[in-house]
Nucleic acid binder design. Structure first.
Lengths: 195, 195
DNA sequence: CTTCTATCTGACCAAGCGTTCAGTTCAAGA
DNA sequence: TCTTGAACTGAACGCTTGGTCAGATAGAAG
């Protein structure tokens, strides 16, 4: 037996990425074998190497795709003159965006230590750029006297950590809807920094 | 060669736990082999099994020890009649306690998925009890009209996530001291919930 | 119908995994 | 000094790992 009937790279490729993402999120990068990913796709392990040079690239590409999408979406946010409105918008966007792809989010900050040093540096740089967007809003608001903030960098990290946490507990069909959760978090973020 | 000169279970035991904790925090449970832990201690892999029944127990005991210590320390916090003071005290305690043992904290919430189902349930129960302490403070404050909170459970999770995040970036000898960081986080937590 | 190439199998490699255990050596008590 | 048991070694177990590759088969093109 060799080539499968109906096989196509445009089908198998995404299937592999999807299976890898699901399994990495569930059990962790180190605990998932290439054979298990292959089995999930319905293929032998060797076939995976037609689509990725190695396991590391599977993880790295997954992370950069996620962060690239995040940066792009954040950059496309409608501008607002008022830092208060911008923070509210940013917080709601962040929560909504993250709740829509919990697996990618989870992987992007749980599997950092499984990246090679070069890949880690690249991912960190993307993450830094994203955090910089939030920090700019906070600094602006502080300069305008709208926010009372001790340290903009620390506050940025605190708010991001708070908002990222939502993916660890939120479950579809639970007590609260996504927009209720987003509103609640945005409210807390604003109150934590407003003058 | 067999028994080492100067060897003693009261020395080797803690050494093993310390090495395992450092390595688990650095590279993750799944990525660390028993041989590597043994090498770190200066012993052969087989010797580890005099101190732990298996690798899983090494992780589980580490987590329960950490959470047990956390629960005990939190329970010993001096009481305060006012929910505002209690929240301030709790937040400062949480930050200080976590900054003193970043490795244990990191492991306790990064390696949950590497626990067997029974062990996971036990750890989750301890975590739940801790979160309950914070939730009680928030609910009290809400009942007394001191806090304006939409959902106490959600707020609890948001505050814990925010405060836990500190261990991912704080480095000894950095720009801010531990108590400055603790004060800043406590301030944000209070402002996020106060009426 | 034939040819070509994209796709996949299945066997294989060297290395490493968690764990066990018979045997060896040291420390401490008699 | 002798004995006993705690502490440890080193080899071995069966299995899994990431990765490679020659060969086989399917779909697409002519």
């Amino acid at each position: 037996m060799a080539r499968k009937t109906g096989s196509h790279s445009e089908i198998t490729g995404p299937k592999i990425r999807a299976a890898a993402q699901r399994l990495f999120a569930q059990d962790g990068f180190a605990a998932v074998s290439m054979r298990r990913i292959a089995a999930e796709v319905g293929v032998q392990a060797g076939a995976l190497y037609l689509y990725t040079p190695d396991k590391q690239a599977l993880l790295f590409d997954m992370m950069t795709a996620h962060l690239g999408e995040l940066l792009e979406a954040a950059a496309a946010l409608p501008a607002a003159p008022d830092p208060v409105a911008r923070l509210d918008r940013f917080a709601r966007f962040h929560i909504a965006h993250h709740l829509e792809r919990p697996e990618a989010v989870f992987i992007a900050y749980m599997e950092l230590r499984n990246l090679t040093p070069e890949n880690f540096a690249a991912v960190e740089e993307m993450r830094r750029r994203y955090e910089q967007m939030l920090q700019a809003i906070l600094s602006d608001g502080k300069a305008q006297g709208l926010f009372r903030i001790g340290d903009a960098k620390l506050t940025t990290l605190a708010l991001i950590a708070m908002m990222n946490g939502v993916t660890t507990w939120y479950r579809e069909g639970g007590r609260l809807s996504r927009s209720e959760v987003a509103a609640h978090y945005a409210d807390m973020a604003l109150r934590a920094v407003r003058a």
